[in-house]
Every structure is written in C-alpha cells, then in structure tokens.
Design a protein around this nucleic acid. Structure first.
Lengths: 285, 285
DNA sequence: TAACATTACGTTAGCCGTAACGATA
DNA sequence: TATCGTTACGGCTAACGTAATGTTA
C-alpha cells in the first residue's frame, strides 16, 4: 500500500517534468519531493527513475506507473465526493413544487417532522417531476395532476383557486366574474416564482405584457401602489390577506381552479408516513 | 484526498467491529485508532460514527463508506502489484524449451547478450508455445517444428539425434542400429525434464517401464552403476561425454532425429536481433 | 469485573525547509 | 551563470504508546 500523498507527488512530477516545478505546483520544497520519490521507489521496490547527474527521468516502468497512479488518485477523489454527496442526500429533502402555495403550507409541516434536515425546494412546472422522483432528484413533489405510473404513492393535499385583483376603478371591476382572455393585451403584475401558473396564464393571455417581479417586496410594493391588475388566490383570501384598495374577482376558467397532489415513490412511502398522515385533501386551500 | 493509512484503519474497524480488536489486528494501539477515525471524519467533513459512551458504531454513511473505501484500497493494491509485475516482466526473459539440449546451449549465449536479465525457462512439449508467445507468456521458444502463423520470426538453430546407451552385455548391444520398439516392455532409465522427448518415447514404447529420475545426480549415478538402458544424444557424444562401460547405438526411428527452431514474435524481433545473429543452423548439435 | 472508548501526557520518529554542494547546458 | 537534483542539518510537528478516566453489560 502506497500513501496517497506519495502518489499525488509522483503524478505532479510526471506532469511538471522536473522536481523543481512540481515543488512549485504543490507549494512545497524541492528536497521534500526528492525524498518522497525515493520513498516511493523504496516502498514499491521498483526503480521508477533514472538519475542523471543533473536531471531526473522516468524509467519505462515509471512512465507505465503514472497512468495507474492517476487511477488510484481518481478513485480516492471519487470516494470523497461520493461519501460527501451520500451524506448530504441523507440530510436533505428535495421537494418539487408546482406552485408557491403548497410550499408555504407544507414547509412548516416538513420542518416539524424532519427536524435537522435541510429542505431543498424546486419551484417549476411539474412535467419533470415524475422523472425527478424516479431518479431521486426529488424525494417529494407537489403536482397539480396525478402522475402516471405504478411506482408513485399519491395523496390529494388540497386545491387552490385563482382570483383577479384589480382597483375599483378598473374596467373589469364591475363584473362578477372574468376570464383570463379578458386580460389579454393588458399589462399585468406577476410574481415570478409561481411554478405551473406561469405557463398557464401566458398561454391564455398571449398578448399580455407581464411585469415580472423577482423580489417579493417589490411585487407587494407595486400591488399596493400601482393600478396594474394582478392575481390573488383562495389561499391568501382565506388568510384574510387582501390588498388594500383592491377587489378580487373570481376567474371563471377551469384552469384557474386546481387540485394539488403530494407524491413520493412507493418504495420511500414509509419514510414519509407521518407527513402523509398529517395532510388531508383540504390542507392547502 | 484521504491517506491510504486512514482508509485501511477504517476498513479494519468495520471488519473488527470494535477499535480494540481492530488495533490488535493492525498491531497498533487503540488510542491511535481513536485519533485516526476522528481525523478521517474531519478530513471528509462527514460524520461516520455514532459515539455511544462505551461503543463506537458506524452511521449509515459510515456503512456506505466501507464498501467504497475497500475499492480504493483494492485499487491501490492493484497498482502496486501491477507496477511490480510490469517491472519484473521488463527484466525477465521467459523462454520455452521443447528439449533440454537447446537450453544448455542457449543459456550461456542469452546470459551474455541480456546481462542483468533474469532467464526463466520452461521445459515441456512445444504444442503450447505458439499461444504462449502470442500472449507474451514467453518471449522466445525453441521448438522442434516450424510454428504456423505469420506473426512469428523463426530461425533454425540446430538439430539433435538420439542414441541408445546400453551395457556391452545387453542383448541389443550387437545391433548396428535399433528402433524404439525394440525397447518396448523393458525397464528404461529416463531423466524427467526432457520436454517433447518424453511424449515421443512413451508413445513409441507403450509397454516400457520408465524409471523416471527427477534429480540429475541420481540419474547419472544410475546410468553409471546399473544395467538399465538409457538415452544419450549427438550433443553429449559430440562433447565426448560418454558413459563409462556403455556403448551408444544409433536409433533408426525418424522421430529420434530432430531439428530445432528458435522463435519469437516478429513484433519483438528487433529486441532479439543479436541473439539471432549469434546462432546458425548448427548451433545445437 | 471485563470490555470498550476517550482523554491526558510525555516521547520520539519522521518530515519539513534552509543551506550547502555538485553537476550540467 | 542559471537551473536542477541530492545531501546535510537543525527544528518542529504530528503520531505514537502508556496510563488514567469514564462508561456499560
């Protein structure tokens, strides 16, 4: 068995060509390398160098050894990466959310049940979630449709309905309900991290100009102090979070009403038992 | 990068179950292991152990790490073996001999040309020699027939003729020449390391009882002080090595007269140029 | 009480860097 | 003369083993 240290120095020499330059690369002294290379030869009991008076050269065996030394080092590095990554995976729960409200509702629950774990949330359209669950990129996912596939355990965890939020002075303010197409062509305030809602509203209002807000603060600022229409939802309204000076109009499109489903792999179902127990089909509303 | 040392200790602990027993296995002290395992965790920045008051246990990550640590160690060990074996192969010349006389004749030549090299000789029937040369099990071979195949470089290096050596009192002593079948059914002294001759003589005299001698001394002792017939050859007779009190009768079978061919791979021909220059088709006689 | 892990402590082997040396182009 | 490798030397770290401590079955 050869110490990793010696192998790394050996490879460094092979790459640098001289001990002096290898020493610079490794931030060590050059006599240290001389000694290490001697030790390496001693431990292998194989001559790896031809020592000219003024120059160190690899023997045929030495050149042969370089490749395999690199393999050993690579294996060592892979080991480190692998262990670290495995350990991290044990302590992080990656969850795919198709919309922000499920994240807001579930995060406190998850923090309670999986204490000490890091929660890693991914917010986007849920088409890639089944594949992500299969590859263990996600341990859990909240989708707005039941995924196909025998390998998934699914439980409905709530629903959400979208509302239009406008000033009383807005032309649409007089209607008891509106459709998304009524907004087409207008400028609309939109918070950017809203998962599948983004895709859906864009498709329904191809001519609208969306004023995307990445920062939550900026979004709230604008909803309160501008006249642009924006969206609200049953969740916020249920919590009494109405925006002052605005009224909320029901959106009649069927796409503006969705159910949410919490999904995991059946093989992992046991691990999330408590979570599934703590939710019912009206957890998110 | 983790030092090989630490990985070996880690695996030893995993196998032994306790630090104390691992320390015994590794012929080191137990506090040394405690410290090493701490260091391993520190360098990986991953907890590998759950420390009970009185007992050290692997975490899930720890158990996961054992397998991969073993792989790294295996790769390291393979590296050592590989380099040593490669270096040895560079300094040893493996030669297949189909008969002992070629070895006796060529060995001094080889020692002169390939000074510092280890000569490794294999004496046996030459059917496996072409395959051995291809696989580089042999670098050179002396055969009693030209091998098939474009990949070989072949040069005739001599011939040898077998004689029967008997006492003057032997019933066969009066014949000017004999055949092997004349010996069938009798007891015959035979030195055991004689390559293809063994197979040939056995086939021609299926009912003979061969008194096999592994030791050369014992063989000579018996040839000089017993009445059993034995074989001699043109080589020994040409050197004046007659056995006192015996006469040598020509063996008339065509199989008792053979040519020898020195063979190497064409791809290696350059390396053995000097050797081929120094032999001619009567080198062995 | 026996087995085990950790901590404390004094010792030392081994590694490091500086400096000196020898050789080369 | 500048570059390179080896050797010598002194200093110091880091690893070791013994012994003591604390815990458990």
């Amino acid at each position: 068995m050869i110490e990793t240290n010696l192998l790394a120095q050996f490879v460094a020499f092979a790459k640098a060509g001289t001990l002096t330059r290898a020493a610079q690369d490794l931030h060590t002294s050059q006599p240290a390398l001389t000694r290490s290379m001697k030790k390496l030869e001693e431990e292998l009991e194989v001559p790896l160098f031809v020592r000219h008076k003024n120059h160190l050269e690899l023997t045929q065996t030495g050149r042969y050894a370089v490749y395999y030394a690199q393999r050993v080092l690579q294996e060592n590095q892979d080991f480190c990466d692998r262990i670290r990554s495995y350990d991290r995976s044990l302590h992080t729960l990656s969850i795919g959310y198709c919309a922000p409200v499920p994240q807001m509702v579930l995060t406190p629950l998850l923090n309670g049940i999986f204490q000490g774990m890091t929660l890693s949330a991914d917010m986007k359209d849920d088409v890639s979630f089944p594949e992500g669950l299969r590859r263990q990129t996600y341990q859990l996912a909240v989708m707005h449709a039941r995924p196909d596939g025998d390998e998934f355990f699914v439980k409905k965890c709530g629903s959400e309905k979208l509302y239009l939020s406008v000033r009383a002075s807005d032309p649409l303010a007089f209607y008891p309900e509106v459709r998304l197409q009524d907004l087409d062509g207008r400028a609309i305030l939109l918070f950017s991290h809203i998962g599948f809602w983004m895709k859906m509203t864009r498709e329904k209002t191809p001519h609208a100009r969306y004023l995307l807000q990445v920062q939550r603060d900026a979004f709230h600022e604008l909803t309160e102090h501008s006249d642009y229409p924006c969206f609200s939802s049953s969740y916020f309204l249920g919590q009494g979070q109405k925006i002052p000076g605005r009224i909320n109009i029901s959106l009649a499109d069927p796409e503006c009403q969705t159910d949410y489903y919490l999904v995991c792999l059946k093989s992992e179902q046991k691990r999330y038992e408590k979570l599934f127990q703590q939710i019912d089909d009206r957890t998110i509303y």
